[in-house]
């Protein structure tokens, strides 16, 4: 039986009602989230604005709120991130490649895979405790940049592994077969093809991991980062041969979130302004890293369309 045109129109109208209804509900939900975040950020920025001067970036912390700055904190954060990246990237990418391309598919690897995913959900303070025992005491790295970097590396390792595996998996099987069909070994296939083609996704995963690490406070406190540091670590670059040195690795340090935590716990009202300003800087750093990730993904995706 054929429906009349009028009936069909009524039916479509009824179906479309839910279309519009959901669009509106969805928009409201989105706005709630975004507006809350935006207003928080605006409040933070407004509060911290008076402190956001060049001097704020070039001064050490001080007992006087007006003179206090975040120099040691941001330098510390950057150096810790360097260590984290150097440790987490090779480990995570290599582990992911092994799991995805080499490991035989059996119950052992299945268990490992599930656990890697679960590790991403372990509370960060637990990593802190682990690191306190392993790096600070057993390996004797002390309360250093190295310990902190390695701790955060452990923390983001699952993220890097999962992101890398996802990117490797996005390379179609036909490309793998094409490489094999030309006589490539597994390693040639991975290093010449799969890895380069998935680099955008891997980079994105790494940066996302690092931007999570840069904001972490709990594990760093657990291993005992100092909160008041009025000096810089040794410079990684030295004027005489061999121009780089590793002394900075063992130096005490502080990082942005700890500096903020320190300021917010002060009773004086002025230090709250410092904390807000540091918060703005930290947020900006994170956003900048995410922006880089998005840009990289966009640029490489433009070149590769499966």
């Amino acid at each position: 039986m054929q429906q009349s045109v009028a009936e069909i129109r009524r039916l479509i109208a009824r179906h479309k009602f839910w279309d519009y209804a959901f669009a509106i509900v969805g928009m409201i939900c989105l706005m709630v989230g975004i507006l809350v975040l935006l207003s928080l950020f605006a409040d933070l920025a407004r509060t911290g604005a008076p402190r956001l001067t060049p001097a704020f970036f070039t001064s050490f912390p001080s007992r006087m709120a007006e003179e206090a700055g975040i120099l040691s904190a941001w330098v510390g954060s950057v150096l810790v991130m360097v260590v984290t990246a150097c440790a987490a990237v090779p480990l995570g990418v290599a582990a992911a490649i092994y799991l995805e391309e080499y490991a035989p598919k059996n119950w052992m690897t299945a268990i490992i895979e599930i656990n890697v995913t679960n590790l991403a959900g372990v509370p960060s303070i637990v990593y802190g405790l682990l690191a306190l025992g392993l790096f600070v005491y057993i390996l004797g790295f002390g309360q250093s940049i190295l310990s902190a970097g390695l701790t955060l590396a452990l923390l983001i390792l699952p993220v890097v592994i999962v992101a890398t595996r996802e990117s490797l998996r996005a390379v179609p099987g036909s490309i793998r077969e094409a490489a094999y069909a030309l006589g490539a070994t597994r390693w040639q296939m991975v290093s010449d093809h799969v890895l380069p083609y998935s680099s955008a996704g891997i980079m994105t995963g790494i940066i996302m991991g690092l931007s999570r690490a840069i904001g972490e406070t709990a594990p760093i406190i657990t291993i005992g980062a100092l909160t008041f540091i009025a000096f810089l670590p040794n410079s990684p670059i030295s004027p005489e041969f061999p121009f780089v040195n590793a002394k900075w690795l063992m130096d005490p340090f502080t990082v942005m979130p700890i500096q903020m935590f320190n300021w917010t716990s002060r009773p004086e009202e002025e230090f709250q302004l410092n904390a807000a300003a540091a918060g703005v800087v930290l947020l900006a750093m994170t956003l900048a890293m995410n922006a880089v990730a998005i840009y990289l993904r966009y640029r490489i995706r433009k070149k590769i369309k499966w």
């Binding site: 036909s174 094409a178 094999y180």
Partner: peptide
């Protein structure tokens, strides 16, 4: 098998050039 693939090459169903 790598020796075999170096002697016998293959063209697939869908064009699959490397990027």
């Amino acid at each position: 098998p790598i020796e075999v693939r170096m002697r016998i090459s293959m063209v697939f169903q869908k064009p699959n050039p490397f990027p």
